[in-house]
């Protein structure tokens, strides 16, 4: 896939919708296209973080370590961004992400990611919205779990 096609593809991702084309091109040029085989991990919980991934094609599952082993908490697909939490708050990876099918991703280095957020408030808002959505979902799950425990 050529750079130009990649820029088109990025433009269709909501996160980057308002980023100007020249910057998208730089993003595409400096980011690595990475293909993962099914079952291969993008990163593992506890690893040090240096990049976020945008899923271009395929599906990946998000897993967390529990005393009983790995537990899937979500499945993500096209246009989703994963791995941004660890680079936003500088903590080790909070979960493992593993390719469920053949997975096409764009790996964005930490520095570039920060730069883009700084330059494009719309992108920051988009990420905030995504994080808020996830938090809302997590809170709902927590509420449900607490209720279950209380009912037991």
């Amino acid at each position: 896939m050529s750079l130009q096609e990649e820029v088109e593809l990025l433009r269709n991702i909501p996160l980057f919708a308002k980023v100007e084309p020249a910057k998208l091109k730089l993003l595409a040029f400096t980011s690595q296209r990475l293909t993962f085989e099914p079952g291969q991990a993008l990163f593992k919980q506890g690893d040090m973080a240096d990049a976020a991934y945008i899923i271009i094609g395929g599906e990946a599952e998000v897993l967390v370590n529990t005393p009983k082993g790995e537990m899937a908490v979500a499945v993500v697909g096209r246009n989703a961004i994963v791995g941004e939490i660890a680079i936003l708050c500088d903590v080790p990876r909070t979960a493992t992400v593993r390719a469920k099918s053949k997975l096409e991703t764009l790996m964005i280095a930490k520095d570039l990611f920060y730069r883009l957020i700084n330059e494009f408030p719309s992108m920051a808002v988009e990420i905030m919205r995504e994080l808020a959505r996830r938090l809302e979902k997590t809170t709902a799950q927590l509420r449900e779990a607490m209720t279950q425990i209380a009912n037991r």
């Binding site: 750079l3 020249a22 091109k25 730089l26 040029f29 520095d111």
Partner: peptide, 20 residues
């Protein structure tokens, strides 16, 4: 042309120059 388009806006010390 592509390089000028991509990198002209970056500060000269940016690590992307060395890397990309």
């Amino acid at each position: 042309e592509t390089m000028v388009e991509l990198f002209a806006g970056l500060p000269p010390t940016h690590e992307f120059f060395a890397e990309y």
